[in-house]
């Protein structure tokens, strides 16, 4: 009983309550909401973002930020399109696009870890630069003649009606959870994020952990970019632009501290579900994308204010006792 109460009082408990509420309201407002087709559609429309949100959780808990994720998505997708158009076989193009993601992550890591430049600045610059490389590759064209198996992977069902990207997200979510909460590496990620100096004095290889995380961020973003290209069936220079905001919003809403050291993978996953079901519910009510984003903005501010208000509240309660 006490454990149940402490779960409910935690941030994840709060998120769960919000999620249930949103599902109830959406289900009452629209008969379509709870259908299998709509639920799959709800995930499928943002599946690339939520995959990136998993790795972004590691980045932010580690006390860093990666603003370049959406540009890496765009660059990988455009590189894939360019290679396919140049006659490279699809499988090789996929491998090269993933390698580009690796290089992008390593490039970020090089400046952040070995030069000691803040990740906010480095990834702001590479966010512009990587997007620029994507534009150099495809200029103002659109490329859409992908191999048939690639399009099928992005658009058709993989297990029953569930598409490949969603299955992949489920697998990655479990792996990310285990890696962050159940391994020594995960503990290091928290420890470095909470206090980098102490972590260094304790003999942890801070640089290596950070480099691994940024490289993982690059590879996963490239993968997400490929999935996006497969789902839409075409690439353009501005593909996936602006996605970094949505991704970061989901992670922060999940209770991950922007200062690092705190947050959980289950928080991120709950926040993903909240954001998706809210957007879907609003879309079913014919509310446009810009307004949806605005509502999510309000939600983001509230999510960082609630812990502060709760703290003040409990302090006042303690005083009256």
């Amino acid at each position: 009983m006490r454990q149940l109460r402490s779960t409910l009082a935690s941030w994840e408990g709060f998120l769960l309550a919000v999620l249930v509420l949103i599902y109830l309201v959406n289900a009452l407002n629209s008969a379509v909401f709870l259908t299998v087709g709509n639920q799959i559609n709800m995930f499928q429309l943002s599946v690339e973002k939520i995959i990136v949100a998993l790795v972004m959780t590691f980045v932010i808990i580690n006390g860093e930020i990666d603003l370049s994720v959406a540009s890496v998505m765009g660059l990988a997708a455009c590189a894939f399109g360019w290679l396919v158009q140049a006659g490279v076989p699809g499988a090789a193009a996929v491998a090269i696009a993933l390698a580009i993601g690796f290089l992008c992550g390593a490039f970020n890591a090089f400046f952040i870890v070995w030069f000691g430049i803040p990740s906010l600045v480095v990834t702001l610059a590479t966010m512009i630069a990587f997007r620029g490389f994507a534009r150099i590759l495809v200029e103002d064209r659109g490329i859409s003649d992908f191999p048939a198996w690639f399009d099928r992977l992005g658009q058709g069902g993989f297990i029953g009606p569930v598409p490949f990207a969603m299955v992949l997200f489920a697998v990655l979510a479990v792996l990310a959870y285990l890696l962050l909460q159940r391994t020594a590496f995960g503990r290091k990620v928290y420890f470095i994020g909470a206090n980098r100096a102490v972590a260094e004095y304790s003999g942890l290889d801070v640089k290596m952990v950070k480099a691994k995380i940024f490289i993982a961020s690059g590879v996963v973003s490239a993968l997400a970019g490929l999935l996006f290209a497969a789902r839409v069936g075409a690439v353009r220079g501005d593909i996936a632009s602006g996605f970094e905001l949505d991704v970061i919003t989901m992670v922060l809403l999940g209770g991950v501290s922007i200062f690092g050291g705190a947050g959980t993978m289950s928080g991120t996953i709950l926040a993903i579900l909240i954001v998706l079901s809210m957007r879907n519910g609003m879309a079913l009510q014919n509310i446009t994308g810009h307004i949806q984003t605005g509502v999510l903005g309000v939600l983001l501010i509230l999510s960082v204010m609630v812990p502060i208000i709760r703290e003040t509240g409990s302090r006042m309660l303690a005083r009256t006792r």
Binding site: T249, I258, G294, V295, G297, L300, I301
Partner: peptide, 18 residues
């Protein structure tokens, strides 16, 4: 409220636009 400015202005970026 001593909220981190990167979060607040990330949110108001979207709110003002909407």
């Amino acid at each position: 409220f001593r909220l981190p400015s990167i979060i607040v202005t990330l949110a108001t970026l979207a709110i003002f636009r909407s």
